[in-house]
């Protein structure tokens, strides 16, 4: 290449090369950190394969940031270590990040059935069940993107209907459909953001009482792996609601929140 005859091309090539160099230099720490995390993940898997489940649990716990797969493997390690309630907890955490992963759903169902809480964790009301399953089918980020797509699609279709009167009837129908999608996605975003925090019972048996007192009358019992919604948190005691809407006070240390505060 004749550099002197192509001064503009040389400048562009020089800039591209410099940009790549800067990108590699700035990304290097992150790439190194990612590789280190990948090594930690493989090391934890190796501990699991060696049957050292308690050590595997500790190794998975150290990995940050935790992905759906880290929570999934952590749940498996807890399951093998005999802590099935904590396995349910971590499968739930994995499901929050990757709600459509069939492996996560399969293990969660299996662990719940093993503990005998699969039916307890599901609301007896069909409408509530439908709404929760719909909201839980996607992450909050995904529902938010759908909501934004719904807004843009609705606005564009309305604009098209205004500018193209000949196609108005068809465009209005499409706009209404996009609007329904928008309303659904908005409702899901609001529901997920307003939903009460969920916790899982991680000890073999928990007694829910009528009052936050050790000698208060026991209202009902919660088995390990039972999911509850936290309605009120008073430090040592939390007021929880089971899927069948039974409510009671339980000790905070007997539960663990699905989404870490």
């Amino acid at each position: 290449m004749n550099w002197k005859s192509k001064p503009v091309g040389c400048a562009i090539a020089h800039r591209i090369l410099c940009g790549w160099a800067r990108l590699v230099r700035n990304s290097a720490p992150y790439l190194i950190a990612a590789m280190a995390v990948a090594d930690d993940f493989k090391a934890a898997n190796a501990l699991f394969d060696a049957g050292k489940f308690a050590e595997a649990v500790a190794a998975y716990e150290k990995i940050e940031p935790k992905t759906a797969h880290v929570f999934f493997n952590l749940g498996n390690a807890h399951y093998r270590a005999g802590q099935v309630g904590r396995a349910v907890l971590n499968y739930e955490r994995a499901r929050l990040i990757a709600p459509g992963d069939p492996d996560i759903l399969a293990n969660l169902k299996f662990a719940e059935e093993k503990l005998g809480v699969a039916e307890v964790n599901v609301s007896p009301k069909l409408v509530v069940r439908f709404f929760r399953s719909l909201a839980g089918a996607r992450t909050t980020a995904q529902w938010t993107r759908y909501e934004i797509i719904g807004v843009w699609a609705t606005m564009l279709l309305i604009a098209a209907a205004v500018w193209r009167p000949r196609w108005r009837s068809g465009l209005v129908i499409l706009a209404v459909m996009a609007g329904i999608g928008l309303v659904t996605a908005t409702a899901m975003v609001i529901y997920r953001n307003a939903a009460r925090p969920v916790a899982v019972v991680v000890v073999p048996k928990v007694e829910a009482r009528f009052a936050p007192l050790a000698d208060a009358t026991v209202h009902f019992q919660l088995g390990e792996g039972t999911k509850v919604a936290i309605r009120e948190d008073r430090g040592q005691w939390v007021f929880v609601e089971r899927a069948d809407e039974q409510q009671g006070w339980v000790r905070a240390e007997e539960l663990e929140r699905v989404a870490k505060p």
Binding site: F41, D49, A106, W152
Partner: peptide, 25 residues
Amino acid sequence: IVYLKGDRGPVASVPPPIWPWNVVP
């Protein structure tokens, strides 16, 4: 139970800022 996942998988995605994206259109 289903066996371990071999890769770390994606991290949790952060929701995009909803208000600017809604107000603009």
